[in-house]
């Protein structure tokens, strides 16, 4: 069983936000508009922002200023606080370690949003809107099962959504391999943000396969996980700059 993981090299990342926008178009996250964005309701399953996030922390004095930026998808924690607190199991971890969201079940209590230490989860405050004909570009992919609705399908208001490691791409790749009557290879599955990354700073693969790039990189001395101290065991791993 694979254990999917993403590695992001902060030295190669140039904070371009290509990943954020690739994610938006792949997964149909809406633009919320100026007023909503100013309230902090912008939807970016993958976000890129400056560090430290709070202005009080020391970043040096001019001209010796350090500025850092970090792209942030879901950490796909092995011990995800978001899942623990969900009263209805609308967010769950599959047996390949992907933390997913079932849009059909979420009751919008936002317990998971307050519990996630990484600010990864997004609530649909209002009905998502695309001024015609903007909506034409929406990705038609959707993942369905009994009582389950996942994938890029447009989410209704009142529920929470999040980065899914583009799980529909995994399903698609598997189905393709099956249709072609061959084994599925790990490298057939690449999330949208990884595919577009301008700095080639993102890597994706199976952490259980010791030969995979992500396994190799995870062993690097530059490797770290964000907020390791809170015990979430993220499977999104970073490589520090320098």
């Amino acid at each position: 069983m694979a254990k999917w993981s993403m590695v992001i090299d902060l030295e190669k990342c140039v904070a371009c936000q290509g990943c954020s926008i690739a994610c938006r178009f792949e997964n149909n996250t809406p633009v919320v508009g100026p007023d909503q964005a100013l309230m902090g309701r912008a939807m970016r399953w993958n976000d890129v922002f400056p560090l430290p996030i709070n202005a009080d922390e020391d970043t040096g004095e001019y001209p010796n200023v350090t500025s850092r930026y970090i792209p942030r998808p879901c950490m796909h924690c092995e011990n995800p606080p978001c899942i623990k607190v969900c009263p209805v199991g609308a967010t769950f971890i599959d047996n390949e370690g992907i933390v997913e969201q079932n849009y059909a079940r979420c009751i919008g209590c936002r317990f998971c949003t307050v519990a996630c230490p990484y600010g990864v989860r997004y609530f649909n405050w209002l009905e998502p809107k695309w001024e015609a004909p903007l909506g034409e570009h929406l990705n038609p992919d959707r993942v369905e099962g009994e009582g389950v609705l996942e994938g890029p399908v447009v989410r209704p208001r009142g529920i929470v959504e999040k980065c899914t490691f583009c799980v529909h791409r995994l399903i698609k790749a598997r189905e393709r391999a099956e249709a072609e009557g061959r084994d599925f290879r790990a490298d057939e599955y690449v999330p949208a943000c990884v595919q577009t990354c301008t700095g080639k700073a993102r890597f994706f693969g199976d952490l259980d396969d010791p030969a995979s790039t992500v396994s190799q990189l995870a062993k690097s001395t530059r490797a770290f996980r964000v907020l390791e101290e809170v015990g979430t065991h993220p499977k999104t791993i970073y490589l520090r700059e320098g």
């Binding site: 964005a37 922002f49 996030i53 709070n54 942030r72 230490p117 600010g119 964000v226 907020l227």
Partner: peptide, 13 residues
């Protein structure tokens, strides 16, 4: 004052 949300993006929570 969350640990890791880009609140700075829209002018602090």
């Amino acid at each position: 004052r969350p640990r890791f949300v880009s609140t700075l993006m829209e002018g602090m929570g």
